[in-house]
Design a protein around this nucleic acid. Structure first.
Length: 202
DNA sequence: CGAGCGATTCGC
DNA sequence: CGAATCGCTCGG
């Protein structure tokens, strides 16, 4: 289907959640949902740290029904509903009982744009995936896809890397929509590919 | 139980 | 700039 391979379990375990958020840029997300195949490039991420980051749902190591998946070991999805309307997709990182996550804020469609439009029920061209809620809608990701294993290419969602890796510069800024996090709202934990047209407006 | 609040998006 | 809209958390 495409030249590339699934990222191994260790990709999600080694290094800090901030490191992994940066390394996820340029990787590809593959979905096979509702019999629709999509392939897209991750172009924008944010890191969340449940131990020391007030913006994280699991801060301070707060384990609830919703955050339970974050306490499992890395390489899984964490999907939750925001504002009662939008689904947001995260990638859990690091070891068990280290509730860290990377929010996928934007992707660049490569394969399956028609499927994305069908999922979204609205032909919006290039603006289908330039936001965390919009990309979940476009790919068909919902709460049902919480705790999906991402290092298995038979999963409905998995992450891989392609052979040809185009070079890019990483831009680092503060995160979007976390004003409630007091001083942690200023942590520079948002990353995106410089100049990419699919980055969210933020 | 129920009040309060969003890791957003879209339209006016 | 404000509404939409409901799952989740926490307090009573």
């Amino acid at each position: 289907m495409f030249e590339g391979n699934v990222l191994p379990y260790s990709f999600y375990i080694d290094g800090s959640v901030v490191d992994i958020a940066i390394r996820l840029l340029g990787k590809v997300m593959v979905t096979n949902i509702n019999n629709r195949f999509t392939l897209s490039r991750i172009v924008e991420t944010e890191a969340y740290d449940g131990e020391k980051d007030k913006a994280c749902h699991a801060y301070p190591l707060r384990k609830t029904m919703r955050t339970e998946v974050m306490f499992k070991d890395g390489g899984r999805s964490y999907v939750y509903v925001c504002y009662g309307i939008h689904h947001l997709m995260n990638i859990i990182t690091n070891a068990e009982n280290e509730p860290h996550a990377v929010l996928i804020r934007a992707v660049e469609p490569i394969v399956g744009l028609e499927a994305m439009e069908e999922h979204k029920k609205k032909a919006g061209q290039a603006l289908l995936t330039n936001g965390p809620g919009k990309l979940c809608r476009a790919l068909g990701i919902t709460r049902k896809h919480n705790d999906v294993i991402l290092y298995d290419d038979s999963s409905p969602i998995w992450i891989g890397e392609t052979k040809e890796n185009l070079p890019f510069e990483v831009v680092q800024t503060t995160r979007i929509g976390v004003g409630y996090a007091e001083e942690d709202a200023f942590l520079p934990w948002r990353f995106f590919i410089e100049g990419n047209l699919f980055v969210s407006r933020g």
